[in-house]
Write a protein that binds this DNA or RNA. Structure first.
Lengths: 167, 167, 167, 167
DNA sequence: TTTT
DNA sequence: TTTT
């Protein structure tokens, strides 16, 4: 049920350990940044060139839990999701926009590279400062409203991944 | 020649007539916005829901010329490109970031819907205020440097499509 | 839940009216052929060239019903599915293999071109020779076993679309 | 320049060492088989299920050389190409059809898994029975015609990868 | 700002 | 067998 197609396919390396938090309804949300690198030769000089693009990827639901458990900084991963731009308020009160790749029920996450990609499988749980993983309300820095939203269309009703990263 | 995959596939409707301009080297750059709409039923209430996502698409080179000539407001189009985030300066001097779908030599543009999608084919050339299309330097509002960039990786060394649109 | 990615994305024109039948469990299966055409210029002579590829697409479940109702000969359609090769017996007793694009729950079908693509919407139901659509057992030319298969992996436990078409 | 989209995206493991041969014009052609595996839980019984699909992938040109040099049995690889069905004669004189994923200039091949995926890089050249790699005419078991074909549309004017594999 |  |  849709008019149009909105699909993103990425293979890249995870920029840092995943950040998982939980919505009031208990659903997990995991954020990562993903680097894809293109390399080519300059047509004029023949010099090798390289450009790395950083992508914000946000997982919802079951994939958020898997991503939070099994991805590490450096993991190579295949991700299939959709583009979504959300609006937020800068400290100066001005509107900012952030474009993310949303990976939920209709999306795909595949860890690549087989054995060794994640040092034998599940990452040791990180220190989370004593907060309970299953009762994560205290992790939320800003008030959360009950989601008015049904599953297939999470409208970014979650805390921003990292307000310091400007895009 | 690349590490990673960075691919976007969109089918949507063009939000306005395309904007074409020309780089100092004569290469065309065309900007459009593209709407993709998802619809679904709310799991709780069963109510039909809808969400439209707007994408900034920028074409380079030959596809920029074709897009500029044949796309109209409302055209349905298939686009295959890659994600790229570019940095720009807000009027307050602060950094802003805009994520675009870049469609160049390695990308694809396909007009959909056959006859009738563009009212019989090529759009009448818009009034461009008397500027020459092939000598477009005067259209540039800001100084342009010579591109240090070879073809496959345009690094957004072009004027912003529309500074008023905040993302 | 998968190791690997198996994805096909097609935009093409439907070669004939869809063929819908029903499995013993009542699930619909719809077959179409889909033409995709590439055109290019011969590098030597500069002559325009063209090649049409025909694809066998098989829809399952809800999408099978929609495809059967709304697609026509000539319709332009976007299809996202996976490759699957099934084995069958030629009249000479030898094994033959047919590769199809399977579009089921995890797949996508999008009609393109808006109004007019299907002459105003739903096609008139074709004459089916007096068989009941919901009790289609008599349409099956060969004995059917109960499907041992759960939804996401239909293993071609359906009658062949058209034994005369050799691939 | 095309009407339609014909795209296949696969991530899988290579089933055997690649087979490279050379066309009369010196261009390389490399064949591999690629396994993609889906796993899911049976809806009725809850039992884990698994299905492996084997794909025939044929690389042309530069990617054929890279694939021939760097892929091994077991390598995990990302492949982007297009579907093509070619006709051939069975020993009984009957027409057979084989569907392949063609990866040429417009396609993509990416080795996955970083270091270790191919045991340190380039595979040792296999024994080729004393034939010269760059003068491969004697490797051809059947007469070859000069290709009447320009680059973007190789029409399978090469020897069959393996006549014993029936699809 | 598009489309159904 | 489709479409432009």
């Amino acid at each position: 049920m849709a008019r149009g197609v909105n699909k993103v396919i990425l293979i890249g390396n995870v920029g840092g350990d995943p950040e998982t938090r939980y919505l009031p309804n208990g659903n997990a949300v995991t954020n990562i940044t993903l680097a894809t690198t293109d390399s080519w030769k300059d047509k004029q000089t023949g010099q090798p060139q390289e450009r790395t693009e950083w992508h914000r990827v946000v997982f919802f639901g079951k994939l958020a839990e898997i991503a939070g458990q099994y991805l590490n900084k450096g993991s190579q991963v295949y991700v299939e999701g959709r583009l979504q731009t959300r609006k937020w308020q800068g400290q100066d009160g001005q509107d900012r926009y952030t474009t993310e790749i949303v990976v939920d029920q209709g999306g795909v996450m595949q860890m690549l590279g087989g054995r060794g990609n994640n040092e034998g499988g599940q990452r040791a749980p990180r220190d989370n400062g004593g907060y309970q993983q299953q009762a994560p309300q205290q992790q939320q820095q800003r008030p959360q409203q009950a989601p008015q939203q049904s599953a297939p269309q999470p409208q970014a009703d979650y805390d921003s991944f990292d307000d310091d990263i400007p895009f």
